[in-house]
């Protein structure tokens, strides 16, 4: 075999076009967000301002842009990992209850930290690093449950998977409520903001670095493993027969997808639909090969949160800016139903 004329590797011309397009969208959204801000008008009211701001505000905006882009990319990659793992187009951190699991992990650690003694030490350790260990454990627990159920039942059809996710999510949600019930009432309000999802405007730099580094690392891993991911699109037996290490690959997908979901949850809370829709947008715009899909998903996920965050800078219905989770759900909900209908039509 000669190395000269191998089959054309993806991304194709269409894939490259899609990636460039998505990159431009992400860049434009980031640019808009950089120029869009909130200021005070002559009457002392809040208003939308356009333009480059002073240094302090610039820092806030850049930090917000990095947080939004990183969290969006992390959610997208996590969704892609779960969709590949479960061979199911509706899989995503939020649909599968992985976001709830991460939230439960966080709550559990907070509760432990309040107990005192050894429990407090464990809680404190889990809460180190903005709670990434706690939420990662919760996220991995949730995805492992879904994965084991899927194995036992010989796979899910898309709707069955959604049902399983709803139940997982509700169970962890109940766990969160139980823990809230156990902590002093004053603490209960703390999580309301987190549950709504928010993009931190001044996230600690180390957290942005960890999250950005993780997204970058997973992107590179996905890029390098793209031909394996492509080949794993075959049926299980066929994929094994051509030398795809399916079991190892799935372990990695589970761990990386769960880890990224946890990081996204720590950074922005349980934001819905971005993890579901970003891989679809990536696939639509870059074609079938995972080399393109991985990059496309990163860019699509980043774009989605950047656009949502830019839009909320200009929408104030009197109660301050709209929470970003409201925007993503308003757009993502109908899109999800569309995917559901499309799946039914194909079946």
């Amino acid at each position: 075999m000669s190395g000269s004329s191998r089959t054309p590797r993806i991304p194709s011309a269409r894939g490259r076009g899609g990636i460039v397009g998505l990159f431009l969208i992400a860049a434009i959204a980031a640019g808009c967000r950089l120029l869009l801000g909130r200021g005070i008008d002559a009457d002392g009211g809040a208003t939308t301002v356009v333009g480059l701001p002073e240094a302090v505000l610039l820092e806030i905006r850049v930090s917000t842009i990095l947080a939004a882009a990183t969290a969006g990319a992390a959610l997208g990659l996590s969704g892609l990992a779960f969709q590949t793992l479960l061979r199911n187009p509706l899989a995503s951190p939020w649909v599968l209850g992985v976001s709830s699991g991460a939230g439960f992990g966080l709550m559990l650690a907070m509760w432990l930290a309040r107990l005192g003694g050894g429990a407090a030490m464990v809680g404190g350790m889990l809460l180190a690093g903005a709670g990434i260990p706690a939420s990662a454990i919760g996220a991995l627990l949730a995805i492992s449950i879904v994965w084991m159920l899927s194995r036992r039942l010989g796979g899910f059809d898309p709707v069955g998977l959604v049902l399983c996710g709803v139940v997982t999510s509700a169970t962890f949600g109940a766990g969160i409520m139980l823990l809230q019930h156990l902590v002093p009432s004053g603490v209960r309000g703390d999580l309301v903001g987190w549950m709504m999802g928010r993009i931190p405007e001044l996230a600690p730099r180390w957290l942005l670095a960890v999250a950005g580094g993780s997204v970058g690392l997973v992107t590179i891993i996905g890029w390098r493993a793209s031909s394996m991911l492509d080949a794993a699109s075959l049926g299980d037996d066929e994929a094994r027969s051509i030398g795809v290490p399916l079991e190892a690959m799935r372990r990695w997908l589970l761990v990386l997808g769960g880890g990224l979901a946890a990081i996204a949850v720590v950074l922005v809370g349980p934001i819905a639909f971005v993890g579901l829709l970003a891989p679809h947008a990536g696939r639509r715009l870059t074609g079938a090969g995972h080399r393109g899909v991985v990059l496309g998903t990163v860019l699509a996920g980043a774009s989605m949160l950047l656009v949502a965050d830019a839009v909320r800078q200009v929408v104030d219905l009197g109660g301050g800016r709209l929470p970003v989770g409201v925007l993503t759900a308003l757009v993502g909900g109908p899109a999800f139903l569309g995917l559901l209908l499309q799946g039914r039509g194909r079946a």
Partner: peptide
């Protein structure tokens, strides 16, 4: 996924890094 017939055949060379 949306792979073409030719791409599906090329997966035969996955383990050896591709196929002509």
């Amino acid at each position: 996924g949306g792979f073409t017939v030719a791409e599906s055949v090329a997966f035969g060379g996955h383990a050896v890094g591709g196929v002509a």
